[in-house]
Design a protein around this nucleic acid. Structure first.
Lengths: 221, 221
DNA sequence: AGTATTCTGTAACGGTTGCTAAAGATAAAA
DNA sequence: TTTTATCTTTAGCAACCGTTACAGAATACT
């Protein structure tokens, strides 16, 4: 036993309750009062155990990665890159559609746009999303090295395409998409999987700058 | 001239300023103080002209649809469905990457998750996203009727796939994606465009329910 | 037993939230 | 010129925000 008065609540259970709230209402949409209420503790206990609202969020984020979002590293262990991608979509749909927790992915729902106070949280989420993308890219790079994927495939582009569809599915989930609909999207997305002997075909079409009037449209950024 | 004292500010310019703020910081992340500051007016003027924060948001949303997001209906006027889709991606990238306004799409950045007070705004955004999807679906349905798209193509699925990639690109934009990266994603997405004589191939693979422990994974929802 | 340490509960902090009442200013209508 | 209508300004509303000081309770160490 540590020393002083023992903690009367389960830290992990409290963290789970906080995770669910952040997940459903986003960082800014979750108040301390709602948190302490759902966690069943008082504010000083929360601050003693987790530091602050922001630190609590980041710890909930860690828990999210380790638990409900563990499908990602798991999927990447599939024998082939294609199977990994398929398992990735399947796992993401299972998580996103799980009625035991909110719809969508915390990395997306947590905060895309926010006020100045939540800028740090927003950047952290962006960093984690990039991390997920990197994990997938590395899997594809290994697949290329092993001859599992054609050598002319760009692992970075392929990974970015996959996660873009994943993030899009999270947005769709927030709009009430059904499991069947997401499965159809995933099937569609897998149709452009690179087959051996294909070109990576880089087109680079010119962009038309005439559609928007007031907000002018530059060529590059 | 109406009757009483004339308004001293340009309603449309004020609305534009509000739109930019909502776009960058989301509905909840934008405070009345920030709004009145950016719009150059006092709170009572805002309430007299726009009603409330929520009504102001919805009017900014209307303006968003009519101005920067007008690329969508414009793109759908392209002669073929494929050209429409390509123009859609090009227009979306132009808008999302325009340095004159925040990154991403307001329909996504505005509010995916939120506190209870912003639930109405969240639903409204979801409704508008569905509306965009429906617009694209109808274009594809016309293309099928005209023989432009193969008859075995499912317009609804194809439209949902396209918008899913679009929403995903909005998330990517929030994470600092570059124009070139988004163009690569769009090119990738267009690779699974249905060619004549293709199957719509419905696979329906079983989902594995073993990856997540605490949060159990049901089969259907 | 006494002390040190860490928890819990109450209560409150200053600041901000979205919103509005009240009074003065500026126009058209009478 | 007076009246009426609508604006702007100042000021402030109650409620909530994230956070903390403080006193009491429960444990371990001496």
């Amino acid at each position: 036993m540590p020393k002083g008065r023992p903690r009367e609540f389960d830290t992990d259970k409290a963290l789970d309750a906080a995770l669910l709230l952040f997940w459903r209402h986003g960082y800014e949409g979750t108040s301390l009062a709602a948190l302490t209420d759902a966690m069943g503790i008082n504010t000083p206990s929360l601050y003693a155990a987790f530091g602050s609202k922001e630190m609590l969020f980041k710890k909930a984020l860690d828990r999210y990665i380790q638990k409900p979002a563990s499908y990602l590293p798991n999927a990447l262990q599939a024998p082939t890159a294609r199977q990994a991608a398929e398992k990735l979509f399947r796992g993401a749909i299972n998580m996103v559609m799980n009625p035991r927790h909110p719809d969508g992915c915390l990395l997306v729902q947590g905060a895309l746009a926010s006020g100045p106070v939540a800028a740090s949280v927003r950047k952290e989420l962006s960093r984690r999303r990039t991390g997920a993308e990197a994990l997938i890219r590395q899997r594809f790079e290994r697949a290329i090295a092993a001859g599992d994927l054609p050598a002319n495939v760009d692992a970075e582009k392929l990974a970015r395409y996959i996660v873009t569809v994943l993030w899009g599915m999270s947005v769709q989930a927030a709009g009430g998409a059904t499991r069947a609909q997401l499965e159809e999207v995933a099937a569609m997305a897998m149709r452009c999987w690179p087959e051996p002997g294909e070109q990576s075909h880089h087109e680079e079409q010119p962009s038309d700058a005439a559609s928007i009037e007031i907000y002018s449209v530059p060529r590059t950024r």
